[in-house]
Design a protein around this nucleic acid. Structure first.
Lengths: 106, 106
DNA sequence: GCTATATTTTCATAATATTGGAACTATGGA
DNA sequence: TCCATAGTTCCAATATTATGAAAATATAGC
């Protein structure tokens, strides 16, 4: 993963409404949710939510499927895992036993 | 963890220089690094870096210890883990076997 | 005290993101 | 074909964030 890809994903999550949307989608797992349901659940106006869903989808953290008049949004867990792996890449220079005892020499 | 705390932490990471700083600190583990070394490593002007380090420290993802004229910055792995736990809280409504087979019904 | 080093703060400019009303598009059913 | 429903796009006002030069602070050693 590239630094810029990660910044895009983190920026997508770094906003109150979008974070709430993502967590709600995580909680709904493979079922996902429609914008209408999300808007009602989180009390966000639909145009505002649509803007945020677009941002999340473009970041890759959320996927979409059109189903007739409805659109199903889902959290993409694999994309999220790639993100956290990138953040922790080469943690403690690879000597993992040091990760287990942080701040030992404070 | 509160939604706002998480947004603050994610915002701290959602910037190219700060993300690079955080990853560098993760890689240096408990040893951490001084601003001077980080600035040289990432080629960021010190005032700009100082601004970003402050943002990271205020988010809780990075801790600081004054050591004479030097300041040691460290990644706070526990804080990071709290953040990811919050993001994945109640994943798939608690039925974890659903998490193992995402997008089954696509 | 003086000097060099390490780091932060101030501040003005520039860039970027968020909001939601109104208008628009697309689909399914009568 | 017409209507209701689901969702998006447009747009202009507002708010937030990043940048780095210059000045300030703080510590160590002489």
């Amino acid at each position: 993963m590239e630094n810029k890809t990660a910044v895009t994903a983190l920026s997508a999550l770094a906003q109150e409404s979008r974070l709430a949307v993502f967590r709600l989608l995580v909680q709904n797992g493979p079922d996902g949710l429609n914008p209408g349901v999300i808007a009602e659940h989180l009390d966000i106006p639909l145009p505002t939510l649509s803007f945020h869903l677009k941002t999340l989808a473009q970041s890759g953290l959320v996927s979409t499927v059109q189903e007739g008049r409805f659109i199903r949004y889902r959290a993409d867990m694999a994309a999220f895992n790639r993100l956290t792996d990138f953040l922790l890449e080469d943690c403690c220079g690879g000597e993992l036993q040091r990760c287990a005892t942080p701040n030992t020499d404070q």
